[in-house]
Design a protein around this nucleic acid. Structure first.
Length: 509
RNA sequence: GCCGCGUUGGUCAAUCGGUUAAGACGCAUCCCUUUCACGGAUGAAUGACGGGUUCGAUUCCCGUACGCGGUACCA
């Protein structure tokens, strides 16, 4: 019998969501949908010193933008509410106590200063960072080293304490990672991690295990940086008596910086000129601003597609996937083990592909926004859509529409005729002087009729059509770019064409 | 230092022991187009190193190197 698949994305609300974070959500989401399961968003705000105002809303908004709405979340609620760990404080304490009572954890009264002292005292060349572990714990102040009455006294006096897990001295512990296969560790090298902090809040280690159990999570996916603490979690599942309910795990590879080595950070984006956050983010504390993919002009479809291909592929060579296609093709076992360097050029390629193939209808609101911020008035939707179809293949990022489509709405300020001036002559001046009358007389106004009339007139005057097309383009567009001239002329309309010809002629005079 | 995880062209990557080692991005050249793109064609460029196992290793195993991650009362 199959239990329903339940996965969770569990971020800390400490700032904007970067590429790696969004990809973790994506893989969770794809897995859940692929298996018809639930996708829950749980906010891991156990460290109130790192809590950042607005981060949770930012996360929600990012998920919405990407089309990955959670089934259960702080905002949407759900059968396992609350979904913020800060609101579940009481339950963690209870389990911590249970572990102490069973002898799998203990109270530790060491102050931060004492901890610091210990680290200094035992620091050596071959052990630069001494751990609070089985070798040292009897030298510290805790319920293992202190007498029972002493512990009772400290407790009753209200001396602050933390709860630490008691790692076995020598045990090999392992699990099967869905991506990496068998992974094992020796408990002798793992320290006695703090489970419950002195403020009564759990650390990540206790909180994930308790909540994954309570929320009946069946599969837990997280970044590779969590692999080293897996043995702590494994033991917790066992000590709490929940081994049978333990989720299957997968540790996702990291997204690396494009140059050099190391994890991609928002600094790299600033340095190299590309976004690393999903959406714009301004840190309320430092006022530091970080640009997002959305504001840079990425379509969420492209953003998601690009992220999915960073560390995963379906093995066929197919690269362009819609969310629906991703959902049906996604398979955790095909996720890579090694990290992938982020390549902004490739990211842009994905966006270009999506813009090129998107129906004008889909692009309409975005393009209208772009035009609006460029101070171009575009009110007629059906006209805008025709423009979109004409120019979309030359737009990589959404803001490109401002340049590529602008001249359909506004005549070029002062057409720069420089590129054709060298070869200009009286015949050409005459051609364009007479052109408006010919256009006026045209019975039908469309690209084909326009081109025919234009070419016929050129032939009659023995001027090469090619020599006339560039000046015509410059008059209409204002630059050496854009779709076929006659398509442009047909769309902007007879009067606009005539006006622009006249202005162009003036610039040539 | 210790522990863990990785390593196929510049980048993303296919291959699940036998191929001339796919494909994509980027780059270069050409065609199309007397604009810019799109599209098409072609090209340069790859299995970290050393041992095994095997008739045969990019693929399996072991070392080494290198990289990354962890080593917090942060997640």
């Amino acid at each position: 019998m199959a239990t329903k698949v339940r996965v969770r994305f569990a971020p800390s609300p400490t700032g904007g969501l970067h590429l790696g974070g969004v990809r973790t959500v994506l893989f969770n989401y794809l897995f859940a949908r692929h298996h018809g399961g639930d996708f829950v968003l749980r906010i891991e705000d156990t460290d109130n010193t790192r809590f950042v105002e607005g981060a949770e809303q930012y996360i929600m908004e990012t998920l919405r933008w990407c089309g990955m709405e959670p089934d259960e979340s702080p905002a949407a609620g759900g059968p396992f509410a609350p979904y913020r760990q800060s609101e579940r404080k009481a339950s963690y304490m209870q389990y911590a106590e249970q572990l102490v009572a069973q002898g799998h954890a203990y109270y530790a009264f060491d102050t931060p200063e004492e901890l610091e002292e210990m680290r200094n005292a035992f620091k050596s060349a071959e052990n630069p960072s001494p751990q609070y572990d089985h070798r040292l714990r009897m030298k510290m102040k805790n319920s293992l080293s202190l007498g029972e009455e002493e512990v009772g006294r400290l407790l009753s006096e209200g001396v602050p304490y933390v709860v630490r897990i008691k790692m076995p001295e020598q045990e090999t512990i392992g699990f099967t990672d869905m991506i990496r296969g068998e992974v094992s560790f020796s408990t002798s090298t793992v320290d006695d991690k703090v489970l419950l902090k002195k403020d009564g809040m759990p650390t990540y280690h206790l909180a994930v295990v308790v909540d994954d159990y309570l929320m009946q999570i069946t599969h837990a996916f997280r970044g590779e940086e969590w692999l080293p603490s897996a043995p702590v979690h494994l033991l917790l599942w066992k000590y709490l008596g929940w081994s049978d309910a333990m989720p299957q795990w997968a540790h996702l590879p990291l997204i690396l910086k494009p140059d050099g080595n190391g994890k991609l950070s928002k600094r790299d984006g600033d340095r190299l000129g590309f976004p690393v956050f999903a959406m714009n983010w301004t840190d309320p504390r430092s006022n530091e601003f970080t640009q997002g993919f959305r504001e840079r002009g990425f379509l969420p479809e492209a953003f998601v597609n690009m992220l999915a291909m960073l560390g995963w592929n379906d093995g066929t060579g197919k690269e362009l996937f819609s969310m629906t296609e991703l959902i049906s093709a996604f398979d955790m076992s095909r996720v890579h083990k090694g990290g992938a360097k982020f390549d902004f050029e490739k990211a842009k390629w994905f966006n270009h592909e999506w813009i090129k193939t998107a129906p004008a209808e889909r692009l309409l609101p975005d393009v209208k926004d772009v035009l609006k911020t460029a101070d171009i008035s575009a009110v007629d939707d059906s006209y805008v859509k025709q423009v979109i179809d004409l120019v979309k293949e030359r737009c990589t990022l959404l803001p490109d529409f401002a340049e590529q489509a602008g001249f359909f709405f506004k005549a070029p300020a002062a057409p720069d005729m420089e590129p054709v001036k060298a070869k200009w002559n009286l015949d050409k001046t005459l051609f364009f002087t007479d052109l408006p009358a010919v256009l006026e007389a045209l019975p039908t106004w469309n690209a084909i009729a326009l081109e025919a009339a234009f070419k016929e007139m050129a032939a009659a005057r023995a001027i090469k059509v090619g020599e006339l097309q560039l000046p015509f383009r410059l008059m209409l567009v204002g630059g050496k770019f854009g779709p076929a001239v006659f398509d442009i002329a047909a769309l902007i309309g007879k009067q606009a064409v005539i006006n622009r010809i006249k202005k162009g002629l003036e610039s040539l005079a």
